[in-house]
C-alpha cells in the first residue's frame, strides 16, 4: 500500500498520516475484539456498531478494502445475521495487521 500517495490524496503529510494509521490500527483491533465478543454472545447490534466504526474510519483514510468488508459486515449484522463472521473477522484482522507491517 502506498501511504505516501494516500497521504497526499488526503492533503496531509506522510508523517501525520502514519500517526493516523497507527491510531487506526489500534482502534480497529479494539473494534475487531468487540466483534469477536459480540459473535460469541450472538449480539447483532454490537457487531453492527463495531463494524460501523471501522467502516467510517477506513473510508476516511482511503482504506477501501477494509471499508468495503466492514460495510458488508455492518449491513449483514443489521439484518440479523452473523453468518461467516468467523472468516470475515479473520480477513479483517489480516488487512489491519498488514497496515501495521507496511
Amino acid at each position: 500500500m502506498d501511504f505516501k500517495d494516500l497521504a497526499s490524496k488526503l492533503g496531509i503529510d506522510e508523517e501525520d498520516f502514519m500517526e493516523l494509521v497507527e491510531l487506526f490500527v489500534a482502534t480497529s483491533l479494539g473494534d475487531i475484539e468487540k466483534i469477536k465478543k459480540s459473535l460469541s454472545e450472538k449480539s447483532c447490534p454490537d457487531a453492527s456498531a463495531a463494524s460501523h466504526s471501522i467502516k467510517g474510519a477506513a473510508a476516511n483514510m482511503g482504506f477501501e478494502d477494509i471499508a468495503r468488508l466492514s460495510a458488508d459486515m455492518e449491513m449483514q449484522a443489521k439484518q440479523g445475521s452473523l453468518e461467516n463472521f468467523d472468516s470475515y473477522i479473520n480477513d479483517l484482522e489480516q488487512m489491519v495487521n498488514a497496515l501495521n507491517n507496511a
Binding site: 501525520d16 493516523l20 474510519a57 476516511n60
Partner: peptide, 16 residues
C-alpha cells in the same frame, strides 16, 4: 464525532 480517528484526521488537516 464519536469516531476518534475522524476527529484526529480533521484536527490534523485543519490545524495545519
Amino acid at each position: 464525532d464519536d469516531n476518534l480517528l475522524n476527529l484526529r484526521l480533521i484536527e490534523k488537516s485543519l490545524s495545519k
